[in-house]
Design a protein around this nucleic acid. Structure first.
Lengths: 146, 146
DNA sequence: AGAAAATTTGGGGAAACCCAAAATTTTATA
DNA sequence: TATAAAATTTTGGGTTTCCCCAAATTTTCT
């Protein structure tokens, strides 16, 4: 009954957490201070966000022990990263941005842009399999019929 | 000393007000109830936002008498509309979206996307002079050297 | 075991939204 | 031109999201 391809109730900030989480090894648990440094924020703030992600069933968070993404969290994180990376490819290949600029520009809008636009962009870019940073682009959301 | 091409302290919501204001005749003063209907919000909410825009010197707002954009407001509104329309053109011509979809997709990201990306997009689209809806695209921000 | 380090809790604060009811001003009409 | 009706603003609340700090708790290290 539930749609799978939607980010439910995730704020922009939470989406940033989700994306960062996706870049980390999925087996290891992440600590709050580790994250606090990345986001230039106090540890207690991270705790708060982890708890929120946990309430949304996106993060498996155990007090004092760190956290890792749930299946659902990975799923939503993959959607975000797919958007992010397709945008990166587009910004580099079509607009000629540098790798760094492509990433920062993608970061500004990946949360807001629709799946449909990304899907069309993906097609136009010939369904890239890797992003400019060398990371693989998960094909879960790409509907290539090759 | 002041940079001219930046949206200063305008929230996404205020940017929506700015864009809507840009679509209205600039000589006439707009009433709060008029706006309230457009945004499906109570009149008092509009008053609040008008006051805020006024504090930012973007809106000339006189109690009980309505409001109209200041020079600065028009300037910032033009930047937003430029982004919006270039995106519309891109979405229609490059991705093949309908006029309506192009508009709604542009609305989702125009506030967040950088001027630089839009500038490159503008060039790729050959510096369009009108958007899909037939509106003229102000060239203030377009650096075409034709 | 006990001290040090990491983490969470609880209490607050600011900003951006929104609404409802009361007060005020404008307008329209009798 | 009064006065009633309509429009607008004020006031007072309420919510959410984000952030910090200090104190309490738990884990880790020696």
């Amino acid at each position: 009954m539930r749609k799978t391809k939607q980010i439910s109730n995730v704020s922009q900030m939470l989406s940033m957490y989700l994306k960062e989480l996706m870049r980390l090894p999925k087996d290891k648990r992440v600590s709050t201070t580790e994250f606090a440094k990345k986001f230039n924020v106090h540890p207690s703030t991270v705790t708060e966000h982890f708890q929120r992600l946990s309430r949304l069933n996106l993060l498996n968070y155990v007090k004092y022990r760190g956290a890792h993404l749930t299946q659902e969290g990975i799923h939503q994180g993959e959607l975000l990263m797919w958007k992010h990376r397709i945008l990166e490819v587009f910004f580099m290949e079509f607009l000629g941005l540098s790798k760094e600029d492509a990433c920062s520009e993608a970061t500004k809008i990946d949360f807001f842009i629709s799946s449909n636009v990304i899907k069309l962009l993906c097609k136009k870019m010939n369904h890239p399999r890797v992003c400019p940073c060398g990371f693989e682009i998960a094909s879960t959301y790409c509907e290539e019929k090759s």
